[in-house]
Amino acid sequence: MEVVDPQQLGMFTEGELMSVGMDTFIHRIDSTEVIYQPRRKRAKLIGKYLMGDLLGEGSYGKVKEVLDSETLCRRAVKILKKKKLRRIPNGEANVKKEIQLLRRLRHKNVIQLVDVLYNEEKQKMYMVMEYCVCGMQEMLDSVPEKRFPVCQAHGYFCQLIDGLEYLHSQGIVHKDIKPGNLLLTTGGTLKISDLGVAEALHPFAADDTCRTSQGSPAFQPPEIANGLDTFSGFKVDIWSAGVTLYNITTGLYPFEGDNIYKLFENIGKGSYAIPGDCGPPLSDLLKGMLEYEPAKRFSIRQIRQHSWFRKKHPPAEAPVPIPPSPDTKDRWRSMTVVPYLEDLHGADEDEDLFDIEDDIIYTQDFTVPGQVPEEEASHNGQRRGLPKAVCMNGTEAAQLSTKSRAEGRAPNPARKACSASSKIRRLSACKQQ
């Protein structure tokens, strides 16, 4: 084909351009004929944790799935940006308080904090938690009735009371019990989460009196709706648990309003109706937990002794299953770290194939690490110290990083047969305790 000078094309009309061969290198194709290559998922490591896909996002930050490269346990990490926390009232204080509380709590029905990582340079905090497959609110939203069968609701409620009793025994008032803060594992274990607005009572406090509340409006008791200066913290949790039980068994809320002012007005009056299909035992329990006067409201001991709580409820309806993943529609909620794991395991070791967030990740503290002497050669063979940054567990980050890069360049065919977990650990520049 004859090559045409581009400067001469402006002298031709459209018809003349076609005659000189423009149609031979300008093609129009339908979008259905285009085959897009999927974007390669680059592996990203935060300390010893391999990052997966997004699980959810809230006002405080994002939650992603991660894999512990040492234990191969599935975890969830809450990623918090200090810049964003400053824009939220009491944001930083709530996060630090939640970390302090979770560090000393150990119960099967309370979410466990596994690790805390802090990135000084990017001003990011990573709260590594045990993995929960789904939230209770997500399960309720997945069915038209917006409720659980009585047998399933009873099982979840009993676990909620177990976890709540443990928190109260530790002198902690949750203040925000609701389905949105109750998570579930694949085995059906309920976990109380989000202790950001919780309050730890003084060890020598005479009672459970509280003065502040930041919980969700629909789950607040009349004493808070009416603006009382002080109130019983434990009875606030009992009320919120009662509203939660009402919601998961009926699909409704005892109090509603077009806006928060109308909602608080209705809560302050204390008038509500219980659907007739709840039955006398459940209705009596709800009335005891939603008692207007805090002094007359049920205690956890009274809830445990109630006939509806103690009764064994046979399954009359099919239980609400864990819904498919909202993004991938995966009904099994498979591990989202698998594509990243395959990338590390299947590809040659190259620095361009993975990302390490930083050479140094500070753990379990908000301060910069200490310094240790770096050896410097002298005339008599002895070495003197220069400062060298280290990880919180004493690992020399720069030395590990250099060693990792040197190993990656060394030709050794046997290394390709290593397991995925050992490869992740070798790529991680800074081991965590």
Rank of each mutant, 00 (worst) to 15 (best):
V368F: 04
E376P: 10
R42W: 15
R384I: 06
F354Q: 15
K122T: 15
K296M: 10
A205G: 03
A93P: 15
E265M: 09
C210A: 10
G394L: 14
S213N: 15
I224R: 06
G394K: 14
Q123H: 07
V372R: 11
S299D: 08
G385N: 14
K44G: 02
L17P: 15
E396N: 12
R106A: 12
S404A: 10
P89T: 04
V320I: 14
L45Y: 05
L72D: 13
E317F: 02
C210G: 06
C134F: 02
D352W: 04
D53L: 02
E223R: 05
E120C: 02
A414I: 10
E351Y: 09
D352K: 13
P323L: 05
L190R: 01
P254Y: 01
L105M: 08
G56H: 01
Q112T: 09
L72G: 12
K191D: 00
D176K: 00
L400A: 15
G370Q: 14
T32K: 04
E293L: 05
K48R: 11
D284L: 05
E342K: 15
A153G: 07
R415I: 05
A389H: 13
P254H: 11
A43Y: 15
D350L: 15
N247I: 08
K287R: 02
V128R: 01
E2V: 11
Q100R: 10
P373T: 07
E57S: 08
A410Q: 08
S422R: 12
K312F: 05
K108D: 01
T244C: 10
F366G: 13
K287V: 08
V150P: 06
G215M: 02
H107P: 01
E223G: 01
L72H: 01
A397Y: 11
I360S: 07
K191A: 07
L164G: 00
K124L: 05
I99Q: 02
E165L: 02
G346A: 14
G10V: 05
H313S: 08
L54F: 06
G346I: 08
I361N: 09
G15T: 15
P38Q: 14
N380H: 12
N226P: 03
T395S: 05
L54G: 09
L54V: 03
L386R: 12
Q152S: 03
S193L: 03
P319V: 04
Q302W: 04
P281S: 05
D284S: 09
L182I: 14
G10S: 08
C134Q: 03
Q220S: 08
P323E: 14
Q137N: 15
G171V: 09
I35M: 05
H379S: 13
M125Y: 10
R104L: 11
A377M: 13
H306L: 04
P314D: 12
R104Y: 03
A76S: 07
T209I: 03
A406H: 14
A414E: 13
T244Q: 00
F354G: 07
L245E: 00
C158L: 04
T212S: 05
N90G: 15
E349Q: 08
P203S: 15
T24P: 15
K269W: 03
A429L: 12
P144K: 15
R384Q: 15
Q220C: 08
A206Q: 06
T244G: 00
N259Y: 07
M335L: 06
T185Y: 05
N412D: 13
T32S: 12
I260N: 15
R331Y: 10
G58N: 03
P294E: 10
T363M: 14
Y131C: 02
F231G: 08
P149I: 01
D30R: 15
T336M: 03
Y126A: 08
W332A: 14
D350H: 09
V143T: 14
P6W: 02
K175Y: 03
R75D: 15
C391M: 15
K178C: 05
P413C: 08
G385V: 02
L183M: 00
H379E: 03
Y246E: 01
G180E: 07
P149V: 03
I46M: 05
D327N: 10
V243L: 03
M127H: 15
S193N: 15
D176L: 00
G233V: 02
I424W: 04
N181H: 01
A318R: 11
I172V: 08
G257S: 11
G233L: 14
G346H: 15
L167W: 00
V173F: 05
E121V: 11
Y156V: 06
D30L: 06
P369L: 07
S193W: 00
F234S: 07
E33P: 11
L195S: 05
G370V: 03
P319L: 10
L400Y: 13
R415H: 14
G10D: 11
P373R: 04
Q371D: 11
R87T: 12
P179D: 00
R415D: 12
Y246R: 01
S404G: 14
T395W: 15
E165T: 01
G394I: 13
L344I: 07
T328S: 11
M22F: 06
A417G: 12
L113D: 00
K312E: 04
A218G: 04
S69M: 03
N119M: 02
E291D: 06
I161S: 00
L282I: 04
C134A: 07
D284V: 03
P323R: 06
E65R: 04
E349T: 13
S299C: 10
R40S: 05
I361Q: 03
Q123I: 03
L263W: 00
K84G: 12
E121I: 11
D258C: 08
G279N: 14
C391F: 05
E120A: 04
S69H: 01
N247H: 09
G257A: 09
A153R: 01
G180V: 04
S213R: 06
N119E: 06
K416G: 13
L9R: 07
F148V: 03
V368W: 04
I79M: 02
P411D: 14
F148N: 01
K96L: 03
I260A: 02
S404H: 14
F231E: 09
V4T: 06
Y131D: 01
N393P: 14
V338G: 08
C430W: 06
Y246C: 02
I322S: 08
I322W: 08
I424C: 10
L55M: 05
S401C: 06
G385S: 13
A205C: 09
F157V: 00
F219K: 00
R301P: 06
G408N: 13
L386S: 12
Q37H: 05
S232E: 10
D208I: 10
V110R: 00
L195R: 01
T209V: 11
S422W: 11
I35T: 10
T212C: 10
L201W: 02
G187I: 15
D365R: 15
